[in-house]
């Protein structure tokens, strides 16, 4: 359970080993990502494969992380389950996040510029 990260192909893959990224985990998740950014990690790929449910608080944490980058990095998402992909579609967040079907696809992609 919890969050982890690994370096791969010059990017930082963030693993969320939690079935629900909801209001009870939004702040710990945001703090974890802020720490990575504070350590100089600028190309993050968030592996969402284990997340079965995300609410607006989890989404807000993801947006806060993107803003924390300050335009000098990228956060891309990979492998969301249907309910999570649906949330990004419903809120039009797919306009500011690139969503890949696989982590490997994210690793070979060019960072999205804002």
């Amino acid at each position: 359970m919890g969050f982890g990260s690994r370096q791969e192909a010059g990017k930082t893959v963030v693993e969320i080993d939690e079935p629900r990224l909801d209001a009870s985990l939004a702040t710990p998740f945001r703090d974890y990502i802020f720490d990575l950014i504070g350590q100089g990690q600028k190309e993050l790929v968030v592996d969402l494969s284990k997340v079965e449910f995300m609410d607006s608080s989890g989404l807000g944490a993801m947006v806060a992380a993107l803003k924390q980058m300050g335009g000098s990095g990228a956060i891309e998402l990979a492998n969301p389950q249907k309910a999570v992909h649906d949330l990004f579609d419903l809120t039009c967040m797919d306009k500011i996040f690139t969503i890949h079907s696989k982590v490997n696809d994210a690793l070979v992609s060019l960072p999205k510029s804002h």
């Binding site: 807000g60 947006v63 803003k67 335009g71 419903l90 809120t91 039009c92 306009k95 804002h114």
Partner: peptide, 26 residues
């Protein structure tokens, strides 16, 4: 209504306030 974020304007990337608009939409 659900606010559509503008990729070119981070001021529109709000981190809260989406919950009830989602409920109204669904």
């Amino acid at each position: 209504a659900v606010q559509v974020p503008d990729p070119a304007n981070p001021d529109t990337w709000t981190t809260s306030g989406r919950g009830l608009p989602i409920v109204e939409q669904l």
